[in-house]
């Protein structure tokens, strides 16, 4: 049965394919249009560059009147991302507008990587390092960038202290 939410998600998907924004991609999972998988490529000139970060987007039948729940699946180190991967971003909460679509959501998260808001931290360590010792912050981010390449096989173990990595990102 088609519902307003599903109809709209089909349109969102079509638009994402026809007019894909740079550096993000997303698609509904195989058997469930209410659950999407997405990837955000770390923006250039940021410590996240070359990272390929996976996310899930979970919609309810209230979409687009209510925002979806968006979560990083890849490990993330960012002032506004919680340990469980959920994201502290105003447009996904109290500033949600029904005029946003999947494309707008993903590009907003992409620019959040670019431009963290350390004043509403979800990850205190990241926020503190971002403010006070940017080099340390960048090192930590570099570690999760490398981890993001290994996500394909089941990501259980993470300890990214190895240096010397073959870069396999196409970028």
């Amino acid at each position: 049965m088609t519902t307003p939410a599903r109809r709209r998600l089909m349109r969102d998907f079509k638009r994402l394919q026809e007019d894909p924004p740079a550096g993000v991609s997303g698609a509904p999972s195989d058997n469930n249009i209410m659950l999407w998988n997405a990837v955000i490529f770390g923006p250039h000139d940021t410590p996240f560059e070359d990272g390929t970060f996976k996310l899930t987007i979970e919609f309810t039948e209230e979409y687009p009147n209510k925002p979806p729940t968006v979560r990083f699946i890849s490990k993330m180190f960012h002032p506004n991302v919680y340990a469980d991967g959920s994201i502290c971003l105003d447009i996904l909460q109290n500033r949600w507008s029904p005029t946003y679509d999947v494309s707008a959501i993903l590009t907003s998260i992409q620019s959040l990587l670019h431009d963290p808001n350390p004043n509403s931290p979800a990850n205190y360590e990241a926020a503190q390092l971002y403010r006070e010792t940017r080099r340390e912050y960048e090192k930590k981010v570099a570690a999760i960038v490398q981890e993001s390449w290994n996500d394909d096989d089941d990501d259980d173990d993470d300890e990214g202290e190895e240096d010397e990595e073959e870069s396999k990102a196409g970028s």
């Binding site: 919680y82 469980d84 959920s86 909460q93 931290p121 990850n123 205190y124």
Partner: peptide, 11 residues
């Protein structure tokens, strides 16, 4: 717990 997302509970 600062690593927990309380917003989600509220929502």
């Amino acid at each position: 717990d600062p690593s927990k997302n309380y917003d989600e509970d509220t929502l």
